[in-house]
Design a protein around this nucleic acid. Structure first.
Length: 383
DNA sequence: AATTCGGGGTA
DNA sequence: TACCCAGAATT
């Protein structure tokens, strides 16, 4: 259902301040145990965890967070690490600008001689928006700041019978916030949103806020907040070349901004939506020939290599938020030239990568799938 | 205000 | 399939 064109801005229900007492009581008994909570809390750990948790589920983050802290236990370690190492630790987590911004932010913090001590200070760091600034300030610094993520927006929209919207819900959160307990209060609502008050199910009878909740008492919890209609992701076609030199494979490192920025991938190209080879009506044989041509052109242009494109090794289907990708991976050989990145090309570096180096470079899940395409039957995989 | 950024769990 | 997840930056 699309957000109403003239949604009422005012909440249809205002809870009393005692709501926070019931919420904190509930939280004291059943807070989730997480590596960045309790004795594990610090500005650095809180910051890293919040960045990792952006649009990413808690259970996925646990493993990444623990590995990260073993490799980069302090902000100085992060600031001094090469970006390739940082992206290697982030590989598979997605939204790679988060890692690039975190790395850049660590350099800012170290240069400044320490972490910011105010909301505005945190908010000025790259990759830190209103939510993360509020979360770190309330949880790690004890400041009275709201931190409205998807959980807070959903729970508080229901409590107030309000259509939602980050700015308006933040204002409502601020007036309920119990002084001195903002960190616990924010996290309590996050836990509540992840356990009882979900997007598609609300177990209101178990909820400590039911007596305070406008939508819950009306049996209308799932009607709030209003949802926005989203468009379907278009299908796109991409090509990649598998070039081998002994055990090594030639990979390109994408320029450090935009899609998969700073990550390594098979040399190739994302075809334009209007490319004839992307026509779903095209005969498979004609398509393969068109893709071979597109691949040879892309690698000649971006890597300075003249290729002989051979057999289709396989295809990889991969879904991103805003597009569905089908990657065609071709075996290929270098007919002439040496790998050379172009300043304005898609890659800033081209490098022959050995299997043993795989864990030390940034790889998207898409690139990992491409590298893991099976060799000819009974020969295993490449790496 | 919309779009661009990944990937996966869940129904 | 279609959501949507401890969102931020860009246009």
């Amino acid at each position: 259902m699309a957000r109403a064109a003239r949604a009422p801005a005012a909440p249809a229900h205002l809870p009393d301040p005692l709501m926070s007492v019931d919420l904190l009581t509930w939280y004291a008994e059943r807070a989730r145990e997480l590596p960045w909570r309790g004795a594990g809390a610090s500005p650095y750990r809180s910051w890293v965890s919040e960045v990792m948790l952006q649009q990413t589920r808690v259970e996925v983050v646990r493993g990444y967070f623990n590995r990260w802290m073993l490799a980069l236990p302090t902000v100085e370690d992060l600031a001094n690490a090469p970006l390739d190492d940082v992206l290697a630790l982030w590989s598979g987590l997605g939204y790679y600008s988060r890692a690039r911004n975190l790395h850049a932010g660590a350099k800012v913090v170290v240069a400044a001689g320490g972490f910011p001590t105010s909301f505005e200070g945190w908010r000025a760091l790259p990759g830190v928006g209103d939510y993360i600034a509020g979360a770190v300030c309330s949880i790690a610094l004890g400041l009275d700041e709201p931190a409205v993520d998807g959980n807070l927006e959903r729970v508080l929209a229901r409590v107030h019978s309000h259509p939602g919207g980050r700015a308006e819900i933040t204002a409502l959160a601020r007036r309920l916030l119990p002084a001195g307990r903002a960190g616990d209060w924010n996290q309590a609502l996050m836990d509540l949103g992840s356990s009882l008050c979900g997007p598609k199910s609300a177990r209101c009878e178990e909820c400590p806020l039911l007596a305070h909740c406008g939508a819950g008492r009306e049996g209308q919890a799932l009607e709030f907040p209003l949802k926005k209609a989203k468009r379907v992701a278009p299908a796109r076609v991409a090509v990649g070349a598998l070039l081998r030199r002994g055990e090594a494979v030639l990979l390109g490192r994408r320029q450090p901004q935009g899609l998969f920025g700073g990550l390594f991938e098979l040399p190739g190209a994302l075809l334009a939506e209007a490319d004839p080879a992307a026509d779903p009506e095209l005969h498979p044989t004609d398509r393969e020939d068109a893709l071979r041509s597109a691949l040879a052109l892309a690698v000649a242009d971006g890597a300075g290599l003249r290729l002989g494109v051979g057999a289709l090794r396989g295809t990889v289907d991969h879904t991103l938020t805003h597009m569905r990708l089908q990657l065609y991976v071709f075996e290929a050989e270098v007919l002439s030239g040496a790998p050379a990145a172009r300043v304005d090309g898609p890659w800033d570096t081209l490098r022959w990568i050995l299997p043993s180096e795989r864990a030390s470079i940034g790889l998207s899940t898409l690139a990992t799938k491409a590298l893991d395409l099976p060799l000819r039957p009974a020969q295993g995989t490449l790496f």
